[in-house]
């Protein structure tokens, strides 16, 4: 009896101690919780609650009946998507563009950051940086508009010049062969300067002592980049790469849609533009949602896979 009494007493003491610790912790941490509260609320309201909307992918949604009363149709929309005549074409175009962007476009910001880091004249460096990231603030409408103005066949500046110099005009905008390079060039031109900022910040945090030691050892600039800067950037590069893979099946609607025309459709048609043409224009919300859900699932799989591989290789990963 006495033993159990002691036991229960000690449990009680432990409980009280634990409760006190929790209360102290809450008191200390409460302001921080309060600070993240708006952020959490924002995520719940604008990110998590709308997720419930995906169930219309499994319904035959008609606006007059509303979300709840529309009929359940199971996986019919997904069957339709996978059996679509163009499904493979869409998948191929999407993956092709993403491969280009990931393996050719992705290194550009890193390269740019390394170059900018080597510039010693501060004025020049700051000016260059501003000029390089300015395109990020231009919308695709403007960028594509300018491109069309310069490159179209009839009266585009470039073609008028070609014509005046006695060369044949080139159908940059309608020849499917030019679509992918043009798209990639736009992406790099618009995004590289902006993307370099994060790498520049990481470079700034590298211990200067490392460079000093390397200089003493007689390492050249290139050697320093190779043995100090790049290894220090490894973690952030891996994280950026994993995040990039998460949007592997996304190519962004606006840019593609603006560059698209009936003559380059076989290389430019991707899920986004397809959904726009078939889903939204015809008012088929359920089908559009189904395609969106499919893309999200693929994105999730890519992120989890990339993260797992990164961890296996001894990197930190994103979670």
């Amino acid at each position: 009896m006495s033993q159990s009494a002691i036991q229960s007493q000690s449990v009680g003491v432990k409980r009280i101690a634990a409760a006190n610790a929790r209360a102290r912790y809450m008191k200390r941490a409460f302001p921080f919780y309060l600070m993240i509260f708006p952020g959490v609320l924002l995520f719940v309201i604008f990110r998590y609650l709308p997720m419930f909307g995906v169930f219309i992918a499994f319904k035959d949604y008609t606006p007059f009946r509303g979300v709840w009363k529309s009929e359940w149709i199971g996986f019919q929309n997904f069957v339709r998507l996978f059996s679509e005549q163009d499904f493979l074409l869409l998948l191929k175009n999407t993956l092709y563009l993403n491969l280009l962007d990931t393996f050719i476009g992705f290194p550009f910001p890193i390269l740019l950051a390394l170059l900018l880091n080597e510039v010693r004249i501060k004025y020049f460096k700051n000016t260059m940086q501003t000029i390089l990231y300015a395109p990020h603030f231009l919308s695709w409408v403007v960028i594509v508009g300018i491109t069309v103005l310069f490159m179209r066949s009839q009266d585009g500046g470039l073609n008028v010049l070609l014509d005046a110099l006695g060369y044949a005009r080139i159908d940059f905008m309608t020849n499917p062969d030019y679509f992918r390079p043009l798209w990639l060039f736009h992406n790099i031109w618009q995004g590289a300067g902006w993307g370099a900022i994060i790498y520049l910040a990481a470079i700034a945090s590298i211990d200067p002592a490392l460079y000093e030691a390397a200089t003493v050892d007689g390492a050249s600039r290139l050697r320093q980049i190779w043995h100090i800067t790049l290894p220090s950037l490894k973690t952030i590069i891996v994280i950026m790469f994993i995040l990039r893979l998460g949007s592997f099946i996304d190519v962004g609607f606006e840019h593609i849609f603006l560059l698209q025309n009936p003559l380059n459709l076989q290389v430019s048609d991707v899920f986004e533009t397809y959904v726009y043409r078939i889903g939204l224009v015809q008012g088929d919300f359920s089908y559009s949602t189904a395609v969106g859900l499919f893309k999200s699932v693929v994105g999730l799989v890519m992120i989890v896979a990339a993260n797992t591989i990164a961890k296996r290789l001894g990197e930190e990963g994103v979670y």
Binding site: V148, R152, S153, Q154, D155, G156, R169, D171, M173, T174, N261, P262, L263
Partner: peptide
């Protein structure tokens, strides 16, 4: 024929 002879606007698709 119209396209080849430049009678049809070369950018009519755009």
């Amino acid at each position: 024929k119209a396209y080849d002879e430049g009678v049809l606007d070369r950018d009519f698709v755009l």
